[in-house]
Design a protein around this nucleic acid. Structure first.
Lengths: 354, 354
DNA sequence: ACTATATTTGTGTACGTACATAAAAACAAT
DNA sequence: ATTGTTTTTATGTACGTACACAAATATAGT
C-alpha cells in the first residue's frame, strides 16, 4: 500500500506538501502541485481512512432528525436502531451521530428539533422530511450553511438532498395489489383504509394506493376498490363500528389493504366472521403487525426494511464525508414480502453490540 | 473515550503492562494483573480497533473456499462479490482475504484448493462444505492447527465450526409450498424436479423438498406431489423430452417446484401449453432465473441472499478475530420472496466500490 | 553478601495521516 | 544590498495501540 511518504519521496517534496495537495489546502506552488497530483494519480493513491480517522479525532458529526417512537407507533424504532448500529461501525472512523426526534404530528416540534440539532454544528444531516413547508425552510438554511442533507424514508422532490434512502412506494403498492389478487376470485372488491392525517402529507401512502389500483388496471381485472376514510384511527370503538358496518353493507369485499403501518388496529377490531373470510395486507414489520401475521389475521406485510434504512443512510453519508463519494441516485431498499413463515428471519438481532 | 494510557495512569503501571494484561501476553505479576483487569472492567475498556489496526499492519488473513462460478452456474458469483465487498470494509482494519475456488463436482479439486489455501497460513477459513468426507479431513486438520472455520451456505452438523451463515432450507421449502398453493385449486398435483447429483450430497435440496411436502401435510391439503429425477440436467434435448412427456402423462399437474438454482433450465424447455398453465417456483436470483421471472415463465423465486451470505460471513469472522466476539449461533439470512415486481430492488449494485 | 537468573515492569518507536509551527525561498520595496 | 513581506516548503508532534527492547526488581544459589 502506497503512502504519503512514498509520494513525497517520489516527488522530491516533503510529506506536508503532499498533504496540502491532497486536501487542497492551498499554499503550494502551481508547478509543485501539478507534479504531486500527477504522481498521486499515477499510483492511484487513496488516503488510508484508518490512519486518517486516528489522526483527525472526531472530525465528523452527523445529526439525524426523525419522528419519535412509542408503544402505539413502533415504526420509527427500527431506523433508530439501524442508525445506532451503523454508528458502531463508523465511530472509530471519527464519525459521531446524534439523533433528534420530533413529534410527527406537530410541525413545530420538527422545527425545534432542527434548531437544537443545528446547535451541535453538524457536518451532515439525515432527515425525515415529514412536513413540506418546514422542510423547505430547513433545507434553505442548510444550503446556506453548506451542510449536506439526506432524506430518509420520505421521498419528496424539488430539493437538493444528497440522496434518498427508502422504498419505492408505488411499486410496493403495486406488489400489494398483486398479492391481494393471489387468493381472490376474479372479480372481487377490496377495501382500502385511509387515515385523514396521513392523506395530507404522506405521499408514500398515496403512491401505494396508486400502485395498488394500477395493478388492477394494468392486468384488466374486473375488481373494484372501496376507500374508507377514518377520522380518528386511535378511537377503538369508533373504528370498530365504522369498519364492521362498512363491511356489512358491502359483503362482496374480500380483502382489506392498509397502506400504512397500523394494520394491527384494523385486524384487532374486525369481527370474527370477517377475520376468517378477508385477506388483509399491510405495511411494516412492527411487533404488533408481526403478531397479526403469526395469528393468521393478516396474510402479508410489506416491509420497508426500516432498520436497513437507518443503517444505509449513515453508511452513505459516511462515505460521502470520508471518501467524498457522491451518490445522487436514490437508494431503494428491497421490497420484502413477509408472511407468517419468513417473518422471524427478518428481525435484526444484532444491533448495539459492542 | 478511555485509552490504555488512562488505564495505566489509574493503575499506576506503564502502558506496556496494561497492554500485556489486555492481550494475555503473560509476564505480569498476578497482583498487578488483577488490579489492571479490575480497572479495565470498571471502565468497560475496549481497544480502539482503528488504532489497533494501524499498529498491527495486516495481522489477519482470511481464506475462503468456495465453488467456482461460470456462465452455466452463476449462483456462486454473488457470495464471491459479497466477500469482496466486505473485504473493502475491513481491509483497513488489517484483515485481508483470498478466495480459493474449486470445482463443485470434484472432491479432489476441493482438497487441492484447501491445500493451496493452507499455504498462505490463514488466521481463519470460510468454507462451503460441499463434500462431507473431505470436509471431515479438512476440519480435523484445521482443528489441529487451531484455525477457526465457518460454514457458508451449506449447513452440516457434527463439526466445530464457529458459525453457519446461510438459509433455513426447510422453512424456505415450506414457504415454497405455501406460495405454490396460493394460485392452485384445492386438490392439485405438483411436480418436484430432482437432479441426481444434488440428491447425493446437498442436504439443502432435500430439506427444501421436506419443507414443501410438510406444508401440504400440515395444512391437510388434498394434493399430490410427483418427483421426477433427471440424470443429466445439462442435456437440453433429453431434458426437454423427459419433462414434457411427463407432463403429458400427468395432466393434473398445476405447478413445478425446482428446489435448486436452475429453474431456468426447466422453464426454457417447457412447451408453450405448459408454460402458460403451470406455476413455477424455484430458488436463487441468478440472472437466468431473474429473466424467467421477468418474462412470466416463473412465478416465484426464493432468494438465499447469496451476496449477503458472503458479506456477513466475512463480518462475522472479522468480529471474531478482532473483537473476540463469539457467535456459535447460526446466522440465518432472510428468506426473500421474489416476484417480477420486486426483483430489481434485490440486486446489489454497490460491490467493489473503493 | 554477591552474582546469576528469572520475573516483572518501563520506555521508545512504528503504523499513516493531519495539522500546527518553524524554516526556507521568492519577491517587492526602499 | 538590505530589510520586510508573502509565498512556499519542511519538520515535528499527536492520534491510540502493538511490540521490541531496556531497565528494574525479585528470587535463587553459592
Amino acid at each position: 500500500m502506497i503512502t504519503i511518504k512514498d509520494i513525497a519521496k517520489e516527488a522530491n517534496v516533503s510529506e506536508g506538501t503532499v498533504d496540502r495537495v491532497i486536501h487542497n489546502r492551498g499554499g503550494v506552488a502551481k508547478k509543485t502541485a501539478a507534479k504531486v497530483q500527477q504522481i498521486l494519480k499515477h499510483y492511484n493513491f487513496k488516503v488510508n481512512p484508518v490512519a486518517s480517522a486516528l489522526a483527525t479525532k472526531n472530525k465528523y458529526f452527523i445529526v439525524a432528525l426523525m419522528p419519535e417512537h412509542n408503544e402505539q407507533d413502533l415504526f420509527w424504532k427500527s431506523p433508530f436502531s439501524g442508525i445506532l448500529k451503523a454508528e458502531e461501525d463508523v465511530k472509530n472512523l471519527g464519525i459521531h451521530i446524534k439523533i433528534f426526534t420530533f413529534n410527527q404530528h406537530e410541525s413545530n416540534s420538527y422545527l425545534n428539533a432542527y434548531k437544537k440539532a443545528l446547535e451541535s454544528q453538524p457536518s451532515a444531516v439525515i432527515m425525515v422530511p415529514n412536513f413540506f413547508k418546514e422542510t423547505t425552510e430547513i433545507t434553505n438554511d442548510l444550503e446556506k450553511l453548506k451542510i449536506p442533507y439526506l432524506f430518509l424514508n420520505i421521498d419528496i422532490s424539488g430539493f437538493k438532498n444528497i440522496s434518498f434512502v427508502g422504498q419505492d412506494s408505488y411499486t410496493a403498492g403495486y406488489i400489494a395489489g398483486k398479492l391481494m389478487h393471489f387468493n381472490s376470485p376474479k372479480s372481487s372488491e377490496f377495501l382500502i383504509i385511509q387515515f385523514k392525517e396521513n392523506i395530507i402529507r404522506n405521499n408514500a401512502v398515496s403512491n401505494r394506493v396508486k400502485g395498488f389500483n394500477d395493478y388492477l388496471i394494468k392486468n384488466k381485472l374486473d375488481s373494484k376498490t372501496h376507500i374508507l376514510e377514518i377520522e380518528n384511527i386511535n378511537n377503538d370503538s369508533a373504528r370498530k363500528e365504522i369498519i364492521n358496518s362498512y363491511l356489512k353493507n358491502n359483503p362482496k369485499i374480500t380483502g382489506i389493504f392498509v397502506p400504512f403501518s397500523k394494520i394491527y388496529l384494523i385486524a384487532d377490531c374486525l369481527e370474527n366472521q370477517y377475520l376468517d373470510k378477508l385477506e388483509l395486507i399491510g405495511f411494516d414489520n412492527t411487533q404488533q403487525n408481526i403478531d397479526c401475521l403469526l395469528n393468521d389475521s393478516v396474510s402479508f406485510l410489506i416491509s420497508q426494511k426500516p432498520f436497513e434504512q437507518g443503517y444505509e443512510a449513515v453508511r452513505l453519508l459516511s462515505d460521502y464525508l470520508i471518501k467524498n463519494k457522491i451518490s445522487t441516485d436514490k437508494f431503494y431498499l428491497p421490497i420484502d414480502i413477509l408472511i407468517k413463515e419468513n417473518v422471524k428471519y427478518n428481525i435484526r438481532k444484532d444491533f448495539i453490540t459492542s
